[in-house]
Design a protein around this nucleic acid. Sequence first.
DNA 1: GTGAAAGCGCTAACAT
DNA 2: ATGTTAGCGCTTTCAC
Lengths: 331, 331
Amino acid sequence: MKPRVTGLDVARLAGVSKSAVSRVFTRGVVSEDVRTRVLEAAKQLKYRPSNTARSLTTSQSKMIGLAITQLDNQFYPDVVQRLSDRFATEGYRLLLFVTHGDTDLDPVLDELLGYGLDAVILASSSLTAEIATECMSASVPVLMFNSVDPGGVVPGISCDDKAGAEIVADHLLGLGHTRFGIVTGLRQSSSSVQRTRAFRNRILAAGFDAPLERSGAYTFDGAFEAVSSMLAESEPPDALFCINDHMAFAALQAIQESGRTPGVDISVVGFDNVGISNWPAFSLTTLEQPLQEMVEATVGALLDAISGRKVKLNSSSFQGRLVVRGSTRQV
Amino acid sequence: MKPRVTGLDVARLAGVSKSAVSRVFTRGVVSEDVRTRVLEAAKQLKYRPSNTARSLTTSQSKMIGLAITQLDNQFYPDVVQRLSDRFATEGYRLLLFVTHGDTDLDPVLDELLGYGLDAVILASSSLTAEIATECMSASVPVLMFNSVDPGGVVPGISCDDKAGAEIVADHLLGLGHTRFGIVTGLRQSSSSVQRTRAFRNRILAAGFDAPLERSGAYTFDGAFEAVSSMLAESEPPDALFCINDHMAFAALQAIQESGRTPGVDISVVGFDNVGISNWPAFSLTTLEQPLQEMVEATVGALLDAISGRKVKLNSSSFQGRLVVRGSTRQV
DNA sequence: GTGAAAGCGCTAACAT
DNA sequence: ATGTTAGCGCTTTCAC
């Protein structure tokens, strides 16, 4: 239980003042002489400035809050990884708030605000609006990731769901499919709603029956169930659009289990292009989200907001691209 | 840019002193009357104690550092999720340090120590020893997760690799297999080394040739390559032990691509029992790590260390159990 | 039970 | 360029 090494210790050893030490570690103006002496003393003492104390004076914690769900959907670990990487190079770290459907929001809120985060990213489809407005009123920059605020007040970075779903529909239509099904996510999820609507409209506009719709609730089991039930219909779809890859994997397996072959008897398209989509076992045709671009935009926007360069964040959406693999009928 | 609401603001509104407010929010001794008035004022002002300021006085940040790699291996997101959940209920949050093979350690180290973390968990096979000793010398409790320090100085929570690998070997032996292969991880990874050694020894002890060994470098592609090359041998193995599930999935697919059927022509066993192991597409026989127990132990130990109840942490390992599925030959 | 005062380790004016 | 000073928002003796 040795007492913490403080800036004062370093100052004394280097024969300078506290402020000199501070300046060295904040890239302030210092003579080369002092700098080296301080650095030397610091190394000797193994001194590191306390981020906590620094936060108190600068009111910059160098921490970004990340609220996220569903780490079993590979899309999210990927998001975490990339956000963490980009922010790390900017000197920020992510403080994690993994939420569940049944998480009570209030305490989380208290915490979020209590930690003095420099910004908050909401990458979970639920619990967004409430927390977001609280953050905004506490003037903490907030951004939604991969979903958009229906109320239009919380800025968000997302994929162009409408355009993406239309590309998917067009692809399926182009393949000559005639009976469509769609596996949706959660009702409160903007992306699920958008993608579903856009897909449906496109199919209708092409003169076909409205797609069969079933919710997979964003879970593997839910989607498996949904697809199995669709396949049991008298006239099952010959083309399936799954709102995300995670559920598409379930679809693929439900189809196989029913004795059909994906890409032959029935086409399946996902959304995200997560890492395992290209595994031979799946070879999933999917609409790729430009994840790195989205992350880049998120980091950029938040950094702007933190530095005060740009007070008001605005939403932006990015265009995905279709990655055609074996799960859709070959022409 | 409204100024932060401070405890003093609440005190004034409630007509009490700063200390009274503090006591209310730290479960100190306060009269019921004061408590309600303070709470009332706090709510009205939307006051939350600053965790930063609190940290400075208490030297408890309520944050745990988590260093981790390989978020594309589902095992780790699962670890993150569970650790986050358990710690959250104890009032702690995880600060994330996602590292890569090429990450430069020094800056990460500075940060780790700078943030004033209450404890650190090292769940990445690399970069462990160096950081760990630094933490220990700064008297920050450290624990390795899912790997053990070869030097024996850093305490760790892990699965009993030796026992696990032996169970796997025995199972394969019991199935009547005769030619074995093993897909290893990284040389610097203790679990890889332990599992490999124990498996090999068991096979040798049973009177068979030493297993073919190939490194998959913990990556999908690496493992795919490794297995493909094994299958191209003149006498390919009829049973494969993959050091972890992530690589076992690659093995399964490499086998399929070679025209063979896992569970029929060749048995495959993994290690971890990650969420997708039971997906029909894989149906992977695997040695399940008692993850929740391990997490429980980690949280418990760290909490003890933080509170000072127990100064010296010790290592412990947990017994896994074999989950038999379709990827191994049916008897 | 409550308030006053000291101080956690740092940064940022302000002097010099 | 460097040192002095005054806090940042909180907890915690210490008196009362």
